[in-house]
């Protein structure tokens, strides 16, 4: 049991447990906090996979910005566990069966395949320098187009949430 394996099991357990709590927590603010813990666990996995830049960007973007946005909306809408409606128990049962069979199908699909793992793969592909080189050479067009995407999203978000002050 190497230390890597122990860390992997711990992070996976944390990620799965907090993901389950996201779905099953009654208070929406608790759901948001459990999702933040899930994001930290996934960032830990990224570090284990030598993707340091992605781990840092994941924390900054997801846990640091997107979740703050969710918390803002929750606080503005003032949702508490008393006002939280639930689906009928039959629907919950059926959806658990559906999600379970989805998981079985996906895992079975991968079971017979042989994935060609390169045993001496270069760990430095996760570093900032090499990712930067690839991003600005092969993926320059998507990078520039994503700036237009952000402009559209910003304009959309500001315009959609304006109050009509008539």
């Amino acid at each position: 049991m190497s230390i890597t394996l122990i860390i992997f099991w711990f992070l996976s357990f944390l990620a799965l447990l907090s993901a389950a709590m996201v779905v099953f927590a009654k208070n929406p603010v608790h759901s948001v906090l459990y999702l933040i813990i899930t994001f930290f666990a996934i960032a830990g996995h990224y570090l284990l996979l030598s993707a340091q830049f992605l781990a840092a960007v994941h924390i900054i973007v997801y846990a640091g910005a997107i979740m703050v946005l969710f918390l803002y909306v929750l606080m503005m809408l003032n949702l508490n566990k008393e006002t939280e409606p639930h689906k009928k128990p039959l629907i919950k049962f059926i959806s658990i069966i559906a999600a379970g069979s989805l998981m079985l199908t996906l895992v079975a699909a991968f079971k017979g395949t042989e994935i060609a793992v390169v045993s001496n793969a270069d760990p430095s592909i996760g570093s900032v320098e090499s990712l930067g080189k690839v991003l600005f050479s092969e993926f320059l067009l998507p990078f520039e187009v994503s700036s237009i995407l952000f402009l559209a999203a910003m304009v959309g978000a500001v315009y959609l949430s304006k109050k009509d002050l008539n």
């Binding site: 840092a56 924390i59 640091g64 703050v68």
Partner: peptide, 17 residues
């Protein structure tokens, strides 16, 4: 860390919480 600046930004973003 070789991503020291990104680490600082990550922690500062968490400070909002």
């Amino acid at each position: 860390l070789n991503i020291g600046i990104l680490y600082i930004f990550g922690v500062v973003s968490m400070g909002v919480y």
